[in-house]
């Protein structure tokens, strides 16, 4: 078949335009992080500064509390992602496969939790966490993030489980597996793309969460990276160069994480399971 050139070119151009649009802020972040402070305001708007420097990066890494923020964020986001994914796998499987009396109400309740603007909940949550000694602590953040992410992650996992034919676990049970063995050895390996997607989703959500981190944490010791970024804003000025350098550094783990799981995200693992 002969494809005509014009629509193909138009198609590629449209994609290119979209990619540029999507990546431009990242480019700007990177550009500013390399611009020396004295050129930041003096050169006007330029696509690339006349002189570049890595000094913001070295400052951020050596003289700021950024490494602490980074470590805290990694702990909070990693733990949240893992805990949420384990809970969501189990509950998503239950919602997908079992019928039980309160199922309808539980699903309704989980939906309900997603309806409130988070700002409304800050005060009550603060009130609950204070006597428990969970304010100003990473554990407290992990608990809150887990609570907020489990419902959506459950629905996400449920849809992945729904996509796996029931015949497979029935076949496993007839082959001699218990329900849990069938879940562990047959269903879970096939849900890897779903697990990867859930991990990725929760990790990035926790990585970039600002509101609760800001409200529940004060002081640098337990601050996560989004809160830490605000320390670059001082009363009279904003250290744009350092802020952007920190931002670029903060992108690295998220990018690495997706690089690791992208294999599972794109892979159709169930291909060939049933039918022709």
């Amino acid at each position: 078949m002969k494809t005509s050139l014009l629509p193909t070119i138009a198609h590629r151009l449209a994609i290119l335009a979209y990619v540029i649009f999507a990546l431009f802020p990242l480019y700007w972040l990177f550009k500013v992080s390399l611009t020396p402070n004295d050129l930041l305001y003096s050169e006007g708007v330029r696509m690339w500064p006349s002189r570049t420097t890595w000094e913001h990066y070295s400052f951020v890494l050596q003289h700021s509390a950024f490494p602490t923020f980074f470590k805290n964020s990694l702990i909070v986001s990693g733990s949240t992602a893992i805990i949420v994914t384990i809970c969501a796998s189990l509950s998503g499987y239950a919602l997908s496969r079992f019928s039980f009396r309160a199922k309808y109400w539980i699903v309704g309740l989980m939906l309900l939790t997603q309806m409130f603007p988070l700002v409304m909940l800050v005060a009550p949550i603060f009130k609950i966490l204070t006597p428990l000694g969970l304010t100003n602590s990473l554990t407290g953040l992990i608990v809150v993030y887990t609570a907020f992410n489990v419902p959506f992650a459950t629905f996400l996992m449920q849809s992945f489980f729904d996509g796996i034919p029931k015949d497979l676990e029935e076949a496993a049970m007839i082959d001699g597996a218990t329900k849990f063995t069938a879940f562990r050895e047959i269903i879970l390996p096939l849900t890897l793309p779903g697990i990867a997607a859930t991990l990725g989703f929760v990790f990035t959500a926790a990585w970039s969460e600002l509101l609760f981190a800001l409200m529940l944490i004060n002081g640098n010791n337990a601050a996560t990276f989004p809160v830490g970024l605000l320390t670059f804003v001082s009363k009279f000025s904003v250290d744009f160069g350092q802020m952007m350098a920190a931002g670029v550094l903060a992108l690295i783990p998220a990018a690495l994480f997706f690089l690791l799981i992208q294999r599972y995200l794109v892979q159709g693992l169930t291909a060939g399971a049933v039918k022709g």
């Binding site: 015949d167 497979l168 049970m173 169930t270 291909a271 060939g272 399971a273 049933v274």
Partner: peptide, 20 residues
Amino acid sequence: LHPKDRDIAMVFQSYALYPH
């Protein structure tokens, strides 16, 4: 009795082969 304890084998219409 649970299916696993019945010692029977079944061939499904969808074959239900383990894809992994």
